[in-house]
Design a protein around this nucleic acid. Sequence first.
DNA 1: TTAAACCTTTACGTAACGTTAATGTCAAGC
DNA 2: GCTTGACATTAACGTTACGTAAAGGTTTAA
Lengths: 251, 251
Amino acid sequence: MEYTISRLAEIAGISTRTLRYYDEFGLLSPARISSNGYRIYSQKEVDRLQQILFYRELGVPLDEIKKILSSKDFDRQAALESHLSALRAKRKQLDLLISNVEKTIKASRGEIIMSDQEKFEGFIQKLIDDNERKYGEEAREKYSNESVDRSYAKLKSMSKEQYEELEKLTAELNETLKAAFEQGDPGSELAQKACELHKKWLCYFWDDYSKEAHIGLAQMYVDDPRFTAYYDKIAAGCAEFLRDALLIYCK
Amino acid sequence: MEYTISRLAEIAGISTRTLRYYDEFGLLSPARISSNGYRIYSQKEVDRLQQILFYRELGVPLDEIKKILSSKDFDRQAALESHLSALRAKRKQLDLLISNVEKTIKASRGEIIMSDQEKFEGFIQKLIDDNERKYGEEAREKYSNESVDRSYAKLKSMSKEQYEELEKLTAELNETLKAAFEQGDPGSELAQKACELHKKWLCYFWDDYSKEAHIGLAQMYVDDPRFTAYYDKIAAGCAEFLRDALLIYCK
DNA sequence: TTAAACCTTTACGTAACGTTAATGTCAAGC
DNA sequence: GCTTGACATTAACGTTACGTAAAGGTTTAA
């Protein structure tokens, strides 16, 4: 079955402008261009557009969607499973919001007391997104999309409390790393503790921890200036120190 | 309790940039500016920000949020009730999406057959938004925000099938109106049928129909060039004809 | 005193389209 | 064949809601 641009736009519930933009962007090309210059879409494009819209619904930026779908490792089945997981997480967040409104209604009637923090329960999307973008994006580029999509779903389902725990863990990791760095020995007890904390930190993002992935990431910290910059904010040379410590830890 | 900008941003899960933007935009001003020039927010601002974030979560553009919250008719309790209603509607849409993924997974395994239309079930947000914007926005300006917010929630909860029914009804209304207009008599049976259809059409948007609201809207069709343009696409003079017919219908 | 964290304003840039204009193509009706 | 409306194209400007960076002032703790 073939579609012109408006037919496809109509069934998908989007504008023709969007489809043209996606073509221009290289995200979704038509199957062919007919003799009159019109875009013609087929079954394959329908399925690809569906995937795009799922990712879009989950807030994934278009350039990332493009990367994911273009990867030779892309697995449709796995992607669908991860959409399911992410959508369920999103529903949980929505339930938090619904619960928040219900509580706010009660508070406004004087039936309960609500803290200012509670009033924003469920509105942590941006913080989560930002955090994922800071840490997850780089990982996504290095590892299979399937794994990263599952990680994304996992992060999305974090409660605010878990998120705060992650923040604490991050702070503790950075402190420990700094102290170990000042000692100067990647094999020291303190350095190995930092590595343990780093592993724990990673398990907030990764479903399946593996030593080789950990080492690979550590090497990336040194190779990629953005990561180097992040750790070298703690102290200059800290990214390399962490890599050296992790080489020992993961042996 | 008072907050500096970063404290408020933190508990709300948004950026300080967002708060500054909202200040500049006139959406959320601080309670006061301290002697050192810093923005200081209080309880009232906390509650207002919560409202803003609920509307934002529901996809309401900032300028509309501003209008709603600035209206002297704004009723916090009613707004919270409408957020609840809208969030529940949004949850329903999310359920549709989840169901869609589940079905797509089965289809990809060859367990079921799925039409191309079904593959986009739940992705009708944009169409609904556009439709609401086209028809609902004008009504919002004229009638109480409470009523419109409920209408918004009602439209949001429409299934795709209901939406298609609405499209059919719109087409039928336009045809009938055209035929009646060609007859030239606002009191004719056909013209009164068009009015009946128009009422039916409105009840997709309005919880509470009233004759005076209907007449008011009809007058607006003539007064506002955007509405006049819409109906005069059917035939020049059609907006006035519809008003005249409705004046008779609503008597 | 110093440094880090926090605050301000200003200003440029961005993502993902929406809207408009100009023009070509197709199909149905006269 | 002609006309008209629907559908298609490309190009280009505009929009919304911030993100990011720069420059500089204020507060706090060591």
